[in-house]
Amino acid sequence: MNKTLTKAQHDKRFILAMVAIPLFVYLIFFLIPCFAGLFFGFTDFGGYSLNVKWVGLYNYKKIFADHAFRKAIVNHLKLYLGTVVFCFPLAFISAIALTRNRALKESSFYKILFFFPSTVPMLIIAILWMVMYNPSFGVFNTFLTAIGLQPVQWLASSKVVMWSVLLIVIWRQFGFYLVYFMAAVSNIPQDIYEAAYIDGASDVQQTFYITVPLTWDVITTAMLFFIESSVTLGFNVVYIVTRGGPDNASEILSSYMFSMITENLDYGKASAVGAIMLLLTLGMAFIILKVFRRESYEY
């Protein structure tokens, strides 16, 4: 290295190397490909020849004309909203109960057990849940017939199948969000609750006026991150358990796109789906940031 460089120049070179090398890898192998889908969606790339032709909006017209694609968009949103609506409140209430209710002495047992599924590869969860859902020997139908109810076609009925998919995702994520919210709830200083208690605030009031506002940041952050995880989780469940069926009833965007690649080798259309997925994701993130984010409270 040049010895006449000053200290400031050394610093500058050092920082440049520290930023440029990781940034290069990150952009080339992750971020640019993700956004390049916006471009390839306008081409007829078939997976082999790199000699691609510009086809304009052709791919987009084709996928929007496909009823399976429209179903996939609706299911994609259903999966996200279903988890946020059912799993988050359940996990949040349980988190409050497990952190603030000293009478539940076994709380760390629940925490450790419930969290475990979120470390288990989706591949295994999917295989195990296929047994749970099996119409003849599955756990649910065995239980239903034992108490005298009609067995349900968990995966073969187009009305039920999305709920079955949703249940797997909730089953896996419940413990994750429980622990996530518990960390936030236990961070709230005890004296705030004590002051509220002295002022006569009930448990419910304490929850809505203290716990929820003070953890709102964490809740919205979880909503934000789940946009991304719902894509991957949903894909794993749909790709292995239902394969999009029956009759595309459980197709979601990511599984639709993946089958476009592996079955039809239609990379152009797959990119178009990917681009729609990306725009949808960023749109959802924007809505959450604009509508749900309030000013955060310092404590």
Binding site: M257, F258, Y267, A270, G274, T281
Partner: peptide, 14 residues
């Protein structure tokens, strides 16, 4: 916020 799935095709080309 970006799922790696949306970039599968370009990554494949790359």
């Amino acid at each position: 916020l970006t799922s790696c799935m949306v970039g599968l095709t370009p990554m494949f080309i790359l």
